[in-house]
Design a protein around this nucleic acid. Structure first.
Lengths: 185, 185
DNA sequence: GTCTATATCAAGATAGAC
DNA sequence: GTCTATCTTGATATAGAC
């Protein structure tokens, strides 16, 4: 009987690291297979196509965010400032302290308008990310203003990630974290 | 004798539209040739490779910005507010009111860390863009603060472009324009 | 579940006719 | 300067052995 070398979930995790650095179109099934310690053909046992693999990956990331990160915004044991800090730090660890920047942002700029299948899940992730931040801001501001502040925070976050990538300097992100904390006043 | 169908500069302009929408790796020489009304092989008379074509395009964009857009920041006939408005509007027309968002931002996220040849020119564009905005802010703020404000403006601008692309709503950009004008106070 | 082998196609790039 | 034709490679994907 055959030996299971890697699970479906593990393939997605390894693939995320490759896609984040190389981008969607520039990543080959060969690249993904190597990262997983498999041969190219074996990937097709788990996923019918590269496109479906990426779609599943994005949905898996959305699920992770919804379960582990975004609920921090509603943690009544913490102050709004503590929630914001905890959420930003976790987002930083998850999406930013790895090489290549933010997979969601990268994939958005690279594939929206080109691979229509990805757009809905990318939008959903941004929507729920916005809602989470809004939930924190709403302790201090009106709902409408909190919504705008949440969107602005993510935009600055993505812009800072671009600068961090271009200049190889994480300070851009740390500064954005700090400015976001100040918006809670 | 052969008939000149298109100039080198025109090829770059047509290619910019394709790259902006499809991205660098997802654009084929075939795509570029079609956009230019040429056959694939003919492109290699003008450019030795796809990589060099893109590099020349980025340098051509840099030249255009340095000649036509960034000098607005030093136009002594205008107030700081008027310079900022004029510069932002021109950047909007040049980079944003076309399909696909900002070619510089797209190319940065897609190729930094993957195509090292592009990174210097991308950095130079961002550097000079930052300097131009700093020149305007410095009428109202300290040089250090102006530098930070200039960087933040570009980051927000790129983040807003991402949202505009993802949600198909240009309001994100207009709002960012308005917020930037308010930073001059 | 993974491997080997292979089919198919499109990509970047080159050579030479016109 | 552009076209036709072609080379070579690497991509996605499939079939079948183990």
């Amino acid at each position: 009987m055959p030996i299971q070398k890697i699970t479906r979930e593990e393939i997605l995790l390894k693939s995320a690291d490759v896609f984040r650095v190389k981008g969607y179109h520039n990543t080959s099934m060969q690249d993904l297979a190597e990262a997983c310690g498999l041969l190219k053909g074996s990937l097709y046992y788990h996923f019918p196509s590269k496109e479906m693999l990426m779609k599943d990956l994005l949905e898996s990331i959305h699920r992770l965010l919804m379960e582990k990160i975004f609920p921090i915004a509603q943690d009544e044991a913490l102050s709004p400032e503590e929630r914001m800090e905890k959420l930003l730090k976790k987002m930083g660890k998850l999406l930013l302290e790895k090489e290549g920047g933010c997979l969601i942002g990268n994939t958005t700029l690279e594939t929206v308008g080109v691979v229509p299948e990805f757009q809905p899940v990318l939008r959903t992730i941004m929507d729920d990310w916005t809602k989470a931040l809004q939930t924190i801001f709403v302790n201090k501001k009106s709902p409408e203003q909190s919504f705008r502040l949440a969107q602005q925070t993510i935009m600055e976050f993505e812009g800072a990630t671009m600068f961090t990538k271009l200049y190889g300097d994480k300070q851009f992100l740390y500064d954005t974290f700090a400015r976001t904390m100040m918006k809670l006043n």
